[in-house]
Nucleic acid binder design. Structure first.
Lengths: 265, 265
DNA sequence: TAGGTAAGTTCCAAATAGTGAAACTTAGTT
DNA sequence: AACTAAGTTTCACTATTTGGAACTTACCTA
């Protein structure tokens, strides 16, 4: 009723607090959270207590700071395996990265945003979570546009509506119309470019990862700089990427309903 | 009042449901969850709705199945970076694994259980998440006993109380008394063994990872089989492991309050 | 096509859990 | 000792949650 859309229920509030703690990316004190929070002191306090007690947050009584808890780490592993194509794609990303020698991104759609779920750098393999887990805009990234172009019409429209169309660079598409036109081109071309639309000097080529049913599972991109590549030379990588994308899709498909695997450590 | 200890609040229940979905490790239908759930149909249904609406779960209307959602994936990444020593320890595990050539585990305490947060196998580096994320007992694993031995007295007592003392093998410690005695030995010895206490034929040597303040950050173990090693030959690896543990602790320390890092993808 | 069964969804009065202003307790100043 | 800020608890008030039961699909089966 007041400002944000979804604010329902205690669970929602608790999750907001979780997000808030996560956003700091480091242990936070109560007062810091209180400042950036909409909730009254007592409410925030109790939510933090609940979350801590539940193991979603950890509390260091020395520093008086809250951090994300181990229960979340445990869920993290499960989430990774269940909700993401990342574990399936991992070996293929490795191979592609090795052969192409440029930055490789694996992404999925998260509401109206791009969620990067994995990344490879060329020379020195980059620390897994260093950038994966970040979100980016859909309308001005290669993977974003690629995934959007092959999305089902209703989802596509919704996402197009929800973009901010902030002009990051001279090449950024800044209207729904321009974006729709671009999506048409991408569809007929079969892949997407990012022509310095998000950051100057950064270009990329991207493909959607599609299930047999045509559902968008994710996106794969190879990113480089204008100093080292042109769109044309990037486009030469597409056949290679297509193979990768095909294999990921195939593997992802067969992973849909695996029987529960018995493991012991 | 009924059976389990903590069952407080709506948030707790919702998180239980999350865990339950996670435990399946694959998309689950409502009826499957209902079967393995303590909650009445309507309650479970509403909890699932809330979680789905919050993005913690995703719902595939085609298959009618729930899976862990993208919001959870996002939180997961953060938790991994913030709450876990795994990202810090990763390169050291790699090195240790390479040099020692046996299975290496990295673990943390999660309530009264051992949470394995990373693992290395000797010959072929094992897929990251294949077994990490699993939990095991404290009282009959090397890392468990190592972490417990150096825990603060109040936490230690609590954990000792909460163990099940199930007799996995002939060597399993099956009483609080025996465990306390073992912890004394471990403390004076400086490291812990697992002498086939969890699985026959499997032995390991383990060290705690301690912060400068003496707080238990995690545990490190090297596991082998009785066919290839004895406790004595495993003990020879301790100095090597001590170095690794020291480096991990040092790095972890400096990560405690990093300034917020600006990143772009 | 009717009739049956299981799965999923909605209802609503009763019960419970959550709310937040304010009072209180620490811990750290000056 | 008096002041201040940070964190914690209280309690009457309310809003949310609860769950049995009824309802609606959707899919079998005869």
């Amino acid at each position: 009723m007041t400002e944000r859309s979804n604010e329902a229920g205690t669970v929602g509030k608790a999750l907001n607090v979780l997000d808030q703690v996560a956003a700091f990316g480091r242990p936070v004190k109560f007062s810091e959270l209180l400042e950036s929070s909409d909730y009254p002191k007592a409410t925030l306090y109790r939510l933090l207590q609940t979350l801590t007690q539940q193991g979603m947050l950890s509390y260091d009584s020395d520093s008086g700071a809250y951090a994300l808890g181990v229960r979340l780490v445990r869920l993290a592993h499960q989430a990774w395996r269940t909700a993401s194509i990342a574990p399936v794609a991992r070996p293929y990303l490795d191979a592609l990265s090795l052969e192409i020698g440029e930055t490789v991104h694996l992404a999925q759609l998260d509401h109206a945003q791009v969620l990067y779920v994995d990344k490879r750098n060329a020379a020195v393999p980059v620390e897994m979570y260093s950038q994966a887990g970040k979100v980016g805009p859909v309308y001005c990234t290669g993977v974003g546009k690629a995934m959007l172009a092959w999305s089902r019409i209703d989802a596509q429209s919704r996402i197009i509506e929800q973009q901010s169309y902030h002009k990051f660079t001279d090449n950024t598409l800044t209207s729904r119309r321009a974006l729709r036109a671009e999506l048409d081109i991408i569809c007929s071309r079969g892949f997407a470019f990012d022509n310095e639309e998000h950051e100057p000097g950064i270009i990329c080529v991207a493909l959607p990862i599609l299930s047999q049913g045509g559902e968008v599972l994710g996106g794969l991109s190879v990113t480089s700089t204008t100093a080292r590549h042109s769109l044309d030379t990037l486009a030469e990588l597409v056949p290679h990427m297509k193979t990768t994308v095909g294999r990921i899709a195939e593997d992802a498909e067969s992973w849909r309903f695996p029987d529960q695997i018995k493991e012991h450590v």
